[in-house]
């Protein structure tokens, strides 16, 4: 009798599953959470602490709460921060302008070969980042295959050069981060309901108006993601500047690298990294506000 009653009570069985339901989200995020906790948060705090230490590699570093390193880092190196932002920004804009028509074409006119085109787009990126950048250096070099030929035909003045200029760095970054822009753009454009595009045509919108009033607004989430994915790594990048930029076009990443690996000024390198990160976070929050992530959720 007692047993019979218990087995019939739905609350008992439900209790267990309800607990499971409550725990499920935490269980699901715990691997990622742990990962980030150990490999991101802990080193971050260690870096923060390191930036406030003084000393040298020989005598050792001691925690002295030297907050003065931050004004120093900004005052001394603001030029590199600004240059990084400029290069990263221009490169991201260039990537957007190059990727959009390409992604648009694949998404809307790729037909059955969409996957092939995407593969072709990604193919160069199967080659190592550094090798690719070196190859760009080869192409952009003063007497190289491209400019050397043009100069020999007297189409360019012999003083013309691209390698070891800001333009080389920006074009290198734009090239290297192309897939991070093209893929999110492709995904959002591909997802746009074709009947919505047809509806715009039916409601008297010309091709241009259809693009400006319907397709472009609906692809904003892709633009947002693409810019985020290119701008953030681009600003912090040092490979392009060191391979394509020569000595005159260092970005903040090069400075951090030099301070860390060659000058052993760990506190300064840590402080510079922190300023860069804080600046990016603030910038991205402002950017997200403008393009509105809440709006983005509504499109989906």
């Amino acid at each position: 009798m007692e047993q019979h009653l218990q087995s019939d009570r739905p609350g008992v069985a439900r209790h267990g599953s309800r607990l499971g339901k409550r725990l499920a989200p935490y269980l699901l995020i715990s691997p990622g959470g742990l990962w980030l906790g150990i490999f991101f948060l802990v080193p971050m705090l260690a870096m923060l602490s390191l930036s406030l230490q003084t000393g040298s590699i020989d005598t050792g570093f001691r925690q002295t709460w030297n907050f003065g390193v931050y004004p120093h880092a900004i005052g001394e190196y603001h030029k590199y921060f600004l240059r990084s932002l400029l290069y990263g920004g221009v490169a991201s804009a260039a990537t957007l302008l190059i990727s959009y028509p390409m992604s648009y074409w694949i998404a809307f006119h790729g037909g059955r070969r969409k996957t092939t085109y995407l593969l072709l787009l990604l193919l160069p990126f199967f080659v190592s980042f550094v090798i690719r950048t070196l190859a760009w250096g080869f192409i952009l070099s003063d007497e190289g295959i491209l400019f050397g030929t043009l100069k020999s035909w007297h189409l360019l003045p012999s003083s013309f050069r691209v390698l070891n200029t800001g333009t080389a760095v920006v074009s290198g970054i734009a090239y290297n981060f192309l897939p991070f822009m093209a893929l999110p753009l492709y995904v959002t454009l591909e997802k746009i309901d074709r009947s919505v595009v047809a509806a715009a045509g039916d409601l008297y919108a010309s091709k241009r108006e259809t693009f400006l009033r319907v397709i472009l607004p609906l692809s904003v989430p892709g633009i947002f993601a693409g810019v985020l994915l290119t701008l953030v790594p681009a600003v912090g990048d040092y490979v392009n500047a060191s391979i394509l930029g020569g000595t005159e076009n260092h970005m903040i990443g090069n400075i951090i690298q030099t301070e860390y690996l060659y000058n052993f000024n760990y506190p300064l390198a840590a402080a510079l990294s922190f300023v860069l990160m804080a600046g990016m976070v603030i910038g991205i929050l402002a950017y997200a506000r403008v393009l509105g992530t809440r709006e983005i959720e509504e499109y989906v």
């Binding site: 509806a199 609906l218 499109y299």
Partner: peptide, 10 residues
């Protein structure tokens, strides 16, 4: 009037 309504989501 389209089968999937085709309203502009934005």
């Amino acid at each position: 009037v389209f089968q999937s309504y085709a309203l502009f989501p934005h």
